[in-house]
Computed example of a mutant assay.
Amino acid sequence: MTNTAADYEAVNDGDENDGGLQDEIPSEDQPAADGELTEEQMRMREFQQHPINNPAKQIRIWTLPIDDLYRKIKNAVLRRRSGIYVPAATGDGKTSSIIAITKRLRMEFGRIAIVRQSYLVHQQPSVRGFYYQFLETMSGNLKGETSAQRTRLVNAFLDAARLAKDDAVYLFIDEAQQMRDMEVGFLKDLYNALELQKVQLVTFLFGQNPGLSDAVNGFKNAKREDLVARFACYDTRLRSFSTLTDITHLLNQIDCTVDKNGRPYTEFFFPTAYANGYRLVCEASQLYSAMKRVMTGGEQYGFPARQVFYAIQDFFAFELDKDAPDFRGSAKQWDIAVANSALKAMLNHKQSTPSACSGLQLALPQTSDSDSPTSAETD
């Protein structure tokens, strides 16, 4: 049976390896089955499996940095414009952005052929390895000679377009900084093969900086305009959190997002305080100030999304047993949570790596060139 575009975002929901302890005799404190868990153990399991703590749930909070990027990508989709590449510093949320943006595109467009691919590095790049990666994502059929794999891959993209009743496929590649020149050449071959069948391949390359920007500059220095024009002509940054507005919006989103039981995230962690009017958004100034205390001018470099979420996770974990009608976080509590998030190490990295800076300057209004694919942003 042919996979649909939605099938290309498989999530592994299988049980994790139990470490060889399946034969251990359970004690009073370690029940034999989930049905025998105590109330406290169930609470701990729920905490561990909550979407805030479990990225495998593939649930992402919609943030202002993601929203800024989405507007540009949506506009490129509307205009079927290939060539956007998205450099970002480690921890800025590339993968989370792809997950959130592709889900939003499906919701808004209804019928659209989207393929998500996380690119794996090969010590010796080969066309067969290139086909193998995409076939593993799209069809699962990895057999045959290289020529047969190429045909099968082209047909898989054609099928995706046909199922969407469209003549375009939108390809999002994560970790694109790992693609060598030769592998981008293989992508060009796929692009051209689809074009012969009157199907357009629209690409969005997401990658870590400085690697991705260095690779694009390498194409330009090598006069590879054929690659730049197809895949890397629009530098579209994913910015970090950098303003109080960013943090306020994020915490408000957490307050408003509900779990599978219809329970707001904040209520799950602080049910008593929530019932008495507490909302996480009231902590925005405390969190933002704690992050700024880590490094003077840190907002200029940008606070990585991963560290911001780590700080929020730790605040929930450290303060969980303090839930009360009058609960409020303190500056000290947020300082501890932020210190535990390794924010200082990431800011040091950004400080020493100019191309990894994605802070306040990217949050300011930008002047758009009339030829940019993002100049006529449409909601």
Rank of each mutant, 00 (worst) to 15 (best):
Q307R: 12
E108L: 04
L105W: 01
V199Q: 07
I312T: 01
Y274M: 05
N276H: 15
R104T: 08
M138L: 15
K143S: 14
L163A: 08
T95N: 12
K94E: 05
G185H: 06
H50G: 03
L194Q: 02
R328C: 12
A275E: 14
G91D: 09
T367Q: 13
Y119T: 04
A339R: 12
D321L: 11
H50C: 02
C282I: 06
L21Q: 08
A164M: 07
V86T: 15
A275T: 12
D335Q: 14
L194C: 05
F241D: 02
G19W: 05
R45N: 09
S139I: 01
A88R: 12
N17Y: 13
Q361Y: 13
Q124A: 13
L347N: 05
R116L: 03
R293S: 12
I101T: 10
E145H: 09
I99D: 09
A33S: 13
V77F: 06
Y70A: 06
D259F: 00
F241Y: 15
T296P: 01
D226T: 00
K165Q: 14
A284T: 09
M138F: 05
W334Y: 08
V154I: 15
P55W: 02
Y191F: 14
P264C: 04
I101L: 15
R230P: 00
L196M: 13
K344R: 14
T367C: 06
I61W: 01
L238K: 05
R293M: 07
T102S: 13
P125N: 02
D323I: 07
Q197I: 00
I84F: 07
N155L: 10
T367S: 12
G83P: 02
G93D: 08
D159E: 13
N261I: 00
G93R: 10
A305Y: 01
F231A: 00
A89V: 10
Q177N: 07
F204V: 11
E175G: 05
P55V: 04
A305D: 04
I114D: 00
R128C: 03
M138Y: 03
S139R: 02
L163Q: 15
L196D: 15
N348F: 03
C282H: 09
I336T: 14
Y301G: 00
A331W: 00
N209E: 15
D379M: 11
I101P: 08
R104F: 02
P87M: 10
Q197H: 13
R293T: 07
I247L: 09
Y288P: 04
R80D: 09
L190N: 02
N348M: 09
R224W: 01
Y301P: 01
E39Q: 12
G93N: 09
P325S: 13
Y119L: 10
